[in-house]
Design a protein around this nucleic acid. Structure first.
Length: 891
RNA sequence: GGGGGAUUAGCUCAGUUGGGAGAGCGUCUGGCUGGCAGCCAGAAGGUCAGGGGUUCAAGUCCCCUAUCCUCCA
């Protein structure tokens, strides 16, 4: 993206076209046009591609086709077109400042996988842009760029399109190559030149609206001669939806198109301001609109604000937008009010947003409140800091202080600066930036995973669609070995018994369930002529089931016929837990409300963990009701069945589906009785009665707004109940009461213990020594009551109390007590406060006796404490104390 | 994944070179009082997150664990 297109401030909107094309219309026309060219229209991929570890968010239209481009999958089609929702944070600083930067945006694309190439891509782009039937843009305002030595593309623009040479600019690899600067700087791999199409708005402003990427090379190493032609050349184009809409609608900023302007103005409404495009607040409102849109989509896909990865991005976007509001004077959560408007603006292409408006708004509101809380806590801290600065005579908040407030307490520097200015104090931005750089380095630059990974399965993926799953009907089946993978390599055979690392077998078909949808993978064994392989876990890679385990006997060759046997008893437990999970999901929604949607789930052998959204802890009463509900459904013996159907049909039936989850075109729907319908690939019971018993064992928090329930089924549930029962009856036995009386008895015992403790500590004497007795033994010395005595059996606390009593009753007094026991000596000394002025110091006094017993000590002037290791010398120590106090008083 | 911070009464938090566990709010009791956080007096309430170590002595210093907050990747 070139920087020339940036404008400091968008001009106010003006409309000259009588009936400019709506954004929704543009999106539809684009897809329609490329369908007419033979492209298959595919839905937008999810915004958060959990299957792709190399990115946090979908950054471009081609992302969902990575494997297609690399020939890693068997192709069902060779031409495609999409409108893809994307999120990028690379240029986040520019959002709101320029006319064309977003975090969230949509990209219109057409793609060719070894099918059409430059000529078609260029001709069709031009046709779509200029033909009256499509966009009908004035061709005089269009010009293009091509890669410096891409004569082929330049030729097509010149000869086919008949663009004059002045309108074909040649640019270098930093502008017109993908990835940028790839020839000289890498990375190695698939790459190619590109050609950009610009629209000239006026004398000064231009907009890049379309980028055509021609992936035709494989880069190998450093130049020269490092670009090798690819046998199969691809097309990857991206047209910015918002940019093109701004051109069509003749508005100077993306933020003023029909699907964004209402949102910007709405942001003004919830902040109590009128939108003014050229003001500072205008910039803030645009940023709020953008970030809210981005977060609404991300949260819709169940990415909640959190401490790392994509969750952190959402959190940062939200807080930035809230800060903008706060800087404009808003002191209460407001962002969440914009969610319905986002859903409304995006209703045409993404109707599903409407289903989650309430939940998304609630998540945002919670985060807003948290952030306001963070700010309030920070304000207290800043108040103290300012006080300190005033007394130190400092007038500038240092970078270190600002950075600490930000990195440790989350207090935004922009707000810090504002508040400092209100107190007539400066703010050291340069120092702050420096500190943040250091912090960033300390946090370490995380290794980035390679964009295009290759694996041992790639060869298989080119020839097979995947492993056929037979596990719904059976736990045992005949199959053929199609792949053996050990140490990341595809092998023809393996005969090493007891490989240290697990080996992976791929079969053409299998009864083994690979871990997915929360259900754990199956275990069991795979055997054939002369060998046995123990399966310890089953996972999935795309449509392939990977049987992980160890060879126990013989030798396996690729192509061998095998019998695959799942541990059927374990599978039974998993089935019970999985069906019970669906029952629980239903019961939670019935008792807590529709918002109690699944957030995550783990299904193991007669054990399940279920996370769901709920604002607060589930009360014990509600929990009991939910458990009873599930057991009621179990005893009803409802039939469980499943069928496959098109995704759209499934949605119509109202089946439970997870928002933002990537579902295939044909889905499997599991129904229990007439109440539960969920899209699910897991293995289930035939009848709900087979669950046996359902027992909730825990309810806890996972993160803000999400609760977790852990439960057991079948034999495990029964075991759990029995264990609890046994513990209770054992306790009852010890207490010699019936089990029902245990709580009362324990409460009574606790009270008794507490009362006895209190009685003991408030006893007027400790170790047989009383304050009165000590007073009686007091010796007058120079008008001071001096008491030095042994208080055997008293601990330090009790001796302190005794000293206090003596001091109160016979001030002025100097008291030192000692007690011996268990190999050590404890000494405590105290003097009346008025004696401090005579130079008396308990801490100094106590040193003399402490020396005698081989210890040290110290304390405050009026009370000190010491200890030693020679109990037998206590008497000697006390004598030393008497001498010392006499000396001190005589001074 | 890394850095910083927190964890003390029901809640919000103080707690200085290691040496008597505190405040405000809330609760309870008694008294006073026409109001908007009523006022006065008194009381109850603590495994200072858990575990280990250093020390005569640890809320305080060191190590480990857990949970939470926060920034960065």
């Amino acid at each position: 993206m070139s920087r020339r297109m940036m404008v400091a401030h968008p001009r106010p909107a003006f409309r000259t076209l009588a009936c400019p094309m709506k954004t929704d219309e543009l999106r539809e026309k684009y897809l329609e046009f490329f369908e007419s060219k033979g492209c298959v229209r595919r839905p937008s991929d999810v915004l958060v591609p959990r299957w792709d570890p190399s990115v946090l968010f979908t950054p471009a239209g081609m992302n969902q086709f990575k494997d297609h481009f690399l020939g890693k999958v068997k192709l069902d089609f060779t031409r495609a077109t999409t409108c893809q929702k994307c999120l990028r944070t690379g240029d986040i600083e520019n959002v709101g400042r320029t006319a064309f930067h977003h975090t969230f945006f949509e990209m219109l694309g057409n793609f060719s996988f070894g099918d059409y190439f430059k000529r078609e891509a260029i001709n069709w782009a031009w046709e779509f842009l200029t033909e009256k039937k499509w966009l009908g843009l004035d061709s005089a305002r269009l010009w293009v760029s091509v890669y410096t030595d891409d004569d082929e593309a330049a030729d097509i623009w010149a000869k086919d399109i008949k663009l004059p040479p002045a309108k074909i600019k040649r640019m270098g690899e930093d502008d017109n190559f993908w990835p940028a600067s790839a020839p000289s700087q890498g990375p190695d791999g698939v790459c190619g030149p590109c050609s950009e199409i610009f629209y000239q708005v006026d004398d000064k402003n231009e907009v890049e609206i379309w980028n055509l990427v021609f992936t035709q090379f494989n880069r190998v190493g450093a130049p020269p001669d490092n670009l090798r032609p690819l046998p199969s050349r691809n097309i990857d184009t991206g047209m910015g939806l918002e940019r093109t809409a701004s051109v069509l609608q003749n508005v100077p900023s993306n933020f003023h198109i029909d699907i964004l302007l209402p949102l910007v103005e709405g942001a003004g409404d919830v902040c109590g301001l009128k939108y003014d495009a050229v003001s500072e607040n205008g910039r803030r409102l645009r940023r709020i609109a953008d970030h809210t849109r981005a977060c609404t989509f991300a949260i819709h896909e169940n990415v909640y604000p959190g401490p790392n990865k994509e969750k952190y991005v959402v959190k940062r976007l939200l807080r930035r937008a809230v800060l903008d509001g706060r800087q404009m004077g808003v002191k209460e959560p407001f962002l969440h009010k914009l969610v319905p408007l986002v859903a409304e603006m995006m209703r045409k292409p993404y109707p599903e947003l409407a289903d989650t408006v309430t939940r998304v708004a609630q998540v945002i509101e919670t985060e807003e409140s948290n952030f306001f809380g963070t700010i309030d806590a920070g304000l207290d801290r800043i108040e103290r800091l300012f006080g300190q600065m005033k007394s130190d005579g400092r007038e500038m908040v240092s970078g270190g202080e600002a950075a600490e407030m930000y990195t440790t307490h989350g207090f935004p520097p922009e707000l810090f600066e504002t508040i400092a200015a209100e107190h007539n104090l400066g703010f050291d931005w340069a120092g702050f930036d420096q500190e943040m750089r250091v912090h960033g380095e300390e946090s370490g630059a995380g290794r980035r995973t390679e964009l295009f990974q290759s694996g041992p399965l790639d060869a298989l993926k080119k020839t097979m669609h995947g492993t056929e799953f037979l596990g719904y009907e059976t736990t045992e089946a005949e199959a053929r070995v199609v792949g053996i993978i050990a140490q990341d390599e595809l092998l023809e055979q393996i005969d090493e018994i007891g490989h240290a690392k697990p080996v992976c077998l791929v079969l053409d078909q299998t009864p083994f369930y690979g871990e997915s949808g929360g259900q754990v993978g199956d275990v069991g064994d795979i055997s054939g002529k002369g060998f046995r392989f123990e399966v310890t876990d089953t996972r999935k890679d795309g449509a392939f089931a990977l049987h992980l385990g160890h060879l126990r006997e013989g030798r396996i060759e690729s192509g061998a016929a095998v019998t695959a046997r799942v541990d059927a008893e374990r599978r039974e437990g998993i089935r019970r837990a999985h069906s019970a999970t669906h029952l629980l999901h239903y019961a939670l929604q019935k008792h807590l409300g529709k918002h109690a949607q699944q957030q995550g789930s783990k299904v193991d052998r007669d054990w399940l963990r279920f996370d769901f959204s709920n604002p607060a802890a589930v009360s014990p009463e509600e929990l009991a009701a939910i458990e009873a509900e599930v057991n009621g459904l179990v005893s009803r013996g409802a039939e469980i069945c499943w069928r496959t159907l098109p995704l759209a049909k499934a949605r119509e039936t109202g089946a439970m589906m997870l928002f933002g989850e990537k579902y295939p075109d044909v889905v499997r729907m599991v129904s229990i009785g007439d109440f539960s319908k969920e899209l699910c690939g897991g293995t289930h019971l035939d009848n709900s009665g087979q669950v046996g018993l359902f027992k909730i064992t825990a309810e806890e928090s996972v993160s803000a707004g999400t609760r977790r329930v852990v439960a057991l089924t079948g034999p495990a549930a029964l075991d759990h109940v029995r264990t609890q029962e046994a513990a209770l009856s054992e306790a009852a036995g010890i207490l010699r009461v019936p089990p029902g009386e245990v709580p009362n008895r324990v409460a009574a015992l606790l009270k008794e213990v507490r009362d006895l403790k209190k009685e003991l500590s408030s006893a007027p004497q400790a170790g047989g020594v009383t304050a009165e007795a000590l007073l009686a033994a007091a010796k007058q010395h120079d008008g001071v009551n001096v008491v030095v005595a042994e208080a055997s059996g008293a601990d330090a606390g009790q001796m302190r109390q005794l000293i206090d009593q003596v001091r109160r009753k016979a001030s002025p007094a100097a008291v030192l007590l000692g007690s011996a026991g268990d190999g050590k000596v404890t000494l405590v000394a105290g003097v009346s406060r008025e004696l401090e002025s005579r130079g008396l110091h308990a801490g100094k006094w106590i040193k003399a006796p402490a020396d005698v017993v081989g210890g040290r000590g110290g304390g405050k002037p009026d009370m000190a404490q010491a200890g030693g290791k020679h109990p037998e010398k206590l008497a000697e120590a006390l004598e030393a104390a008497r001498r010392e106090i006499a000396a001190l008083l005589d001074k």
